Computed example of a mutant assay.
Amino acid sequence: MEGFDVIQPRFAHYLLANTGLEELAGGFRWIEGLVWFGDADCLLFQDLPRDRTMRWIEGNGVSMFRSPSGYGNGQARDRQGRLIACSHRERCLFRTELDGTVTRLVDRHAGKRLNAPNDVTVKSDGSIWFTDPLYGIQNDYEGGRQASEQPAAVYTLDPNSGSIMCVASDFDGPNGLAFSPDEQRLYVAETGDQTLDHPKQYVRVFDVSPEGTLSGGDLFHKIEPGYADGLCVDEDGNVWSSAADGVHCISPEGELLGKVLVPHRVSNLTFGGRLKNRLFIGGSHTLYAIFLNRRGVAWP
């Protein structure tokens, strides 16, 4: 099929013969942090280097949602429908309350400032999980150079008590993250130390205990060409990952099933639409979407 690379036969069943990749909007500098708002029927995403959060609505196009955004990156919704956003400039997580006010949730661990929270997801118990690499404070393009106070890590936050726990610190550059549908596995993209010539770049998978601790952390899959940045998961547990040539679909066993080919390097992606069967894709400076024969795991 044109526009796809079917590697395993079952991937063909995830595709629809009468649809293809759509270009929704362009002219951005670098798209990140896609999150679907089903109750508002809109998509929010970051135009990160321009320090603004954008909103896309079918038939109405793109409008400004928030500027400045604190050089916002990853976004998610909590179980009350509130927006949780990572901020590079402020080195924290923000929550937008239902009345529109903004609350700073966390900016420190063990008394030291976080680096530059990158991606975030919310578990069904309300706990907030996020990655904290150094990327956003290493240059002036995506937040502004600042000194790091602690190593890159993955954290979980109890928004009720404010308690923060480091759940994995053996990363050079933790990036996108996503839970399996049953929340017993956590996938985390290791994007590595990009100041090195050959950084570590692959997706890792962890087992999640009922108490919220992680074990394992084995190599799950290595994206080629490029590397994994954003991740999302469908109803069957397949992992959909960004890549240099588009979006790669990976089985729960770590096998590459196929690719959605995209003209530009993909940074981030999320499932959305009324039935959660529309994959929204941040392709560098262009926003794309495609309808699939699979539903994503998305809230709400």
Rank of each mutant, 00 (worst) to 15 (best):
residue 139 N to R: 12
residue 179 F to P: 03
residue 70 G to S: 07
residue 234 D to A: 09
residue 61 G to E: 05
residue 130 F to E: 02
residue 296 G to F: 04
residue 229 D to I: 06
residue 10 R to Y: 07
residue 218 D to S: 13
residue 144 G to I: 09
residue 107 D to S: 09
residue 233 V to P: 11
residue 289 A to T: 15
residue 62 V to E: 02
residue 222 K to Y: 03
residue 174 P to L: 15
residue 68 P to K: 03
residue 85 A to P: 06
residue 110 A to H: 06
residue 179 F to R: 13
residue 171 F to A: 03
residue 9 P to N: 13
residue 264 H to S: 12
residue 223 I to W: 09
residue 256 L to M: 02
residue 53 T to H: 01
residue 242 S to L: 01
residue 84 I to C: 06
residue 176 G to M: 04
residue 277 N to V: 09
residue 60 N to Y: 04
residue 240 W to L: 09
residue 276 K to I: 03
residue 43 L to F: 05
residue 296 G to I: 04
residue 221 H to R: 05
residue 254 G to W: 11
residue 24 L to I: 11
residue 225 P to Q: 02
residue 180 S to V: 08
residue 69 S to Y: 08
residue 59 G to R: 14
residue 211 E to P: 03
residue 62 V to P: 01
residue 128 I to M: 11
residue 202 Y to N: 14
residue 239 V to F: 10
residue 41 D to V: 01
residue 59 G to F: 11
residue 73 N to C: 10
residue 62 V to M: 07
residue 279 L to Q: 08
residue 121 T to M: 02
residue 291 F to W: 12
residue 246 G to C: 03
residue 47 D to Q: 00
residue 149 E to H: 09
residue 243 A to D: 13
residue 102 V to M: 14
residue 91 R to H: 08
residue 167 V to N: 08
residue 256 L to K: 12
residue 14 Y to G: 02
residue 286 T to A: 05
residue 132 D to Q: 07
residue 29 R to S: 13
residue 80 Q to V: 03
residue 295 R to A: 09
residue 88 H to P: 02
residue 34 L to E: 02
residue 75 Q to L: 15
residue 186 L to K: 06
residue 171 F to L: 05
residue 240 W to C: 00
residue 55 R to I: 05
residue 13 H to L: 13
residue 163 S to I: 11
residue 2 E to K: 07
residue 40 A to C: 06
residue 234 D to S: 14
residue 67 S to E: 10
residue 146 Q to L: 06
residue 241 S to V: 14
residue 134 L to F: 11
residue 13 H to E: 15
residue 197 D to E: 13
residue 104 R to H: 13
residue 48 L to D: 00
residue 248 H to D: 01
residue 181 P to T: 02
residue 210 P to W: 09
residue 268 N to W: 01
residue 174 P to C: 10
residue 212 G to S: 04
residue 32 E to D: 08
residue 101 T to V: 05
residue 19 T to H: 11
residue 169 S to I: 08
residue 211 E to A: 15
residue 35 V to R: 07
residue 104 R to W: 10
residue 299 W to H: 10
residue 165 M to S: 11
residue 5 D to N: 15
residue 83 L to H: 00
residue 252 P to A: 11
residue 6 V to F: 03
residue 170 D to R: 06
residue 109 H to A: 12
residue 202 Y to F: 15
residue 44 L to S: 00
residue 150 Q to P: 07
residue 285 H to Q: 03
residue 54 M to V: 08
residue 156 T to I: 14
residue 247 V to A: 06
residue 232 C to L: 00
residue 277 N to W: 01
residue 114 L to C: 14
